[in-house]
Computed example of a mutant assay.
Amino acid sequence: MFSLTRKKNACLAGLLMLSGAAVAADPAPVVTTEPAVTSASEKPAAVAAAEAAPAAPEKPAPFVATEPAPVASEKPAPVIATEPVPVASEKSAPAVTEIPALLTVLPTSAATVPAAKEEPKAPVKPVFSLDSEEQKRAYASGVAMARYIEEQIEQQKALHITMSKDIMLAGIADTFNNQVKMSDQDIHTTLTAFDEQVKVLTKAEMDKKSAADKAFLADFAKQDGVKKTKQGLLYLVKNKGEGNVLKDTDTVEVGYQGKLVDGTIVDGPQVENANQVFRVANMPPVLRDSVKLIRKGGEIQVVIPPVAVENASDANRPDVVVIYTITVVDVNKAQ
């Protein structure tokens, strides 16, 4: 009888533990150390009540202890919760979305996270001064070279040839640094073809201008009052002016401008619409001979064909028609 009672009590305790009631406020009746009882009348009331409860093991009442009281002789059993309790790992999802923002700073794997690229640093400009003659010579040579290149670029624009300044500067820098990206043969071939192209385009442009010049000369010569000098210049006095004939000893204030048939200005004062003072004897031949044909307040137009300057050197001989407009603003007699 004693052994049966102990088995029932042990079974009841096991079911209570599985249902969450193993940590009840008074767990003493589960495990007892009282001496064996020989008759039902001598059994404790708690034991008799436990034996009298027929369906207690079948429908255990759910019980969740807020603060389980540990048993002195046994380690506290793990609590099996009836409702799932949120685990910390379930809240870790938002943290994953924040990781990519930090990967560029703290990469976790070189295989999955590309290394951050460093921004190219601006080239350091050389620091120099112009305190010595050697430095001045070097700088002046650079300026002269740049101006020559600028002049060539402008001339090529008239032939509809474009040239990149940046690439030209790269070629100069690569040459100085011994990092030329073309072979000598390729450079020679490229420049030879370029020279031929310039020659062809130049000839075509000059032929076009020559035809325009001839047409202008023919039309100008037909105008009333146009005369021709011994040197072959054509001129037209638009306003003779007043006063005496100018002499070499006179000082005159003149306004003048030389341009091509297409309107390109090739000669004149540095300041636009400004006048210039000359001593008649020291004027260029074309201007000197022209002002002597008019007086103070007079205006003359002079057309200079290329054949009219045969005595000029090859470097100074114009190959196009130049049209001068000259005005005598004032005349100061010599004292």
Score class of each variant (00 low, 15 high):
Ala52Cys: 02
Phe2Gln: 15
Val96Arg: 09
Leu234His: 06
Gly20Ala: 03
Glu74Lys: 11
Glu42Gln: 12
Ser89Phe: 09
Lys292Ala: 01
Leu12Phe: 02
Leu287Met: 12
Glu83Leu: 14
Glu134Val: 02
Val47Gln: 13
Pro84Ala: 10
Glu67Trp: 09
Ala215Leu: 11
Glu133Trp: 00
Leu102Val: 08
Ala25Glu: 13
Tyr139Asp: 08
Asn311Phe: 13
Arg295Tyr: 02
Thr327Ile: 08
Ala88Ser: 13
Ser129Glu: 09
Arg317Asn: 10
Val266Ser: 11
Phe220Arg: 01
Ala193Arg: 10
His160Lys: 15
Gln135Ala: 14
Val329Trp: 03
Ala138Phe: 07
Asn239Trp: 04
Pro285Glu: 11
Pro94Cys: 10
Lys121Val: 12
Lys240Asp: 14
Ser313Glu: 08
Thr251Trp: 02
Arg288Trp: 01
Pro306Leu: 02
Ala45Gln: 15
Pro123Asn: 13
Asn282Lys: 14
Lys208Gly: 05
Val328Phe: 03
Ala308Ser: 13
Thr192Glu: 06
Ala312Glu: 12
Lys247Glu: 09
Val30Glu: 10
Lys214Trp: 03
Thr5Ala: 11
Val64Asp: 06
Ile323Glu: 01
Asp248Glu: 15
Asn316Gln: 14
Ala110Lys: 13
Asp330Thr: 10
Val277Cys: 03
Leu18Glu: 13
Thr251Pro: 01
Gly171Cys: 08
Val252Cys: 01
